[in-house]
Design a binder for these strands. Structure first.
Lengths: 214, 214
DNA sequence: CAAAAAAAGGGGCTTTTCCCCCTCCTCAGC
DNA sequence: GCTGAGGAGGGGGAAAAGCCCCTTTTTTTG
């Protein structure tokens, strides 16, 4: 048996199987399991007792995504290290993943050598940061407005989700059981808070920040 | 040398390298080259004379995407068969790719066995259709409005992209060097064609169908 | 060439969106 | 008990979006 066991969690079977072949060729690692989503991962952990050293975790997956799965792992098996592996290079996604407890973040367009390096670093140093990730972390602390980042209140988020719909504000008002004028207030508040000039800007923000599901 | 040569075109190096390993394990195929985008593919064809039997083509790539590359291949090397390989299962993308001349369409979440079958089918029968693709083709002929599917003209697409921006229609008009009234015409035409009732619907459509980049 | 279709532009109208400034109520905290 | 913050609601108006019906020009095509 090789030194380190690894589990791949990714819903793209072709990719995960191909990746398994690639990693099995590295003499220091071997693939312990290939799973399709977070739910399968939890089931695997409930049915097994010998845990892997590293989990290569995709982020966008059906049923249970990588962020939730990473949170679960951090709660129940904090010694198993998660290395996020995604083609999504949006800053918010990277941050969410790191906040959930991932020890590193790799993009799928990297060279296999980098992956090998990344896995080794996570095992040895407990952490692996690429330049891209470092930049994202720095960006969250940019001198923007001082105290808090753009944090929406529950009611504002609810409105934003409805604004990303083809409903008129009047319809949104009745959906939220509020007067159209109150909705008008939420609208203005969000315009200012998110620095947009019209409803399209609101929709674009909601989608970019993944606050709304399409 | 093995029977059939294959070229992989995909910007996700980790995936393409892993896939190369996978396919090299199939005894009937060998990988002739692994390229990162459509432009590299054209350059490769200009510098080589022994062409592959099949090209596994990703769709979303920087510089030159899979659709354009497939069109170029169809024009210049119609004997080389393109098998589209994407995680994008949107109907419009599938249709665009088949219209560009792809002989089949596979999703990245398939099992390696299916890939092997697909490549073999494309080589032997010249074509490979999964159920998903067949459905898409059927859907374009749904008894909707008679003639054409939802295919946007270049000018309409240009307008749609600008509509997915926080610009006003007046600003869009001057961007496209048209009168606001003409823009109004495009708007109405798109509302009808895409079955939406306001600009938000337009934005949502554009993003869902990945016609606009965020 | 003529007919048809597509592209461009317009008039006039209603609804919706956007903006600013104002009131009432409630509840937490000196 | 007063005060201030925040949620809910409102008046009024300008601008943009949406709707229908119409003309002219260019391009395509039988």
């Amino acid at each position: 048996m090789k030194q380190h066991q690894i589990i791949i969690v990714d819903d793209h079977v072709l990719f995960s199987q191909a990746l398994k072949g690639l990693i099995d060729d590295f003499e220091e690692f071997s693939i312990q399991a290939v799973l399709g989503n977070g739910k399968e991962l939890i089931t695997w952990f409930e049915e097994n007792t010998k845990y892997p050293a590293v989990i290569l975790m995709d982020i966008n997956m059906p049923i249970m995504d990588g962020i939730e799965a990473t949170k679960w792992l951090n709660d129940h098996h904090p010694d198993v290290k998660v290395l996020a592996l995604s083609m999504d290079d949006h800053e918010t996604t990277i941050i969410s993943m790191l906040r959930a407890g991932a020890k590193g973040y790799l993009l799928k367009d990297i060279h296999p050598k980098i992956l090998r390096q990344g896995i080794n670093d996570v095992i040895e140093k407990g952490i692996y940061y690429t330049e891209r990730v470092t930049n994202s972390i720095l960006n969250t602390y940019k001198p923007d407005n001082g105290a808090s980042a753009v944090l929406l209140k529950p009611r504002e988020l609810e409105f934003l989700k409805l604004a990303c719909t083809d409903k008129t504000y009047k319809e949104i008002a009745s959906d939220m059981c509020l007067s159209p004028k109150t909705i008008d207030g939420y609208r203005e508040a969000l315009f200012a808070k998110l620095e947009v000039r019209n409803r399209i800007g609101l929709v674009l923000y909601g989608i970019k920040e993944k606050l709304v599901v399409l």
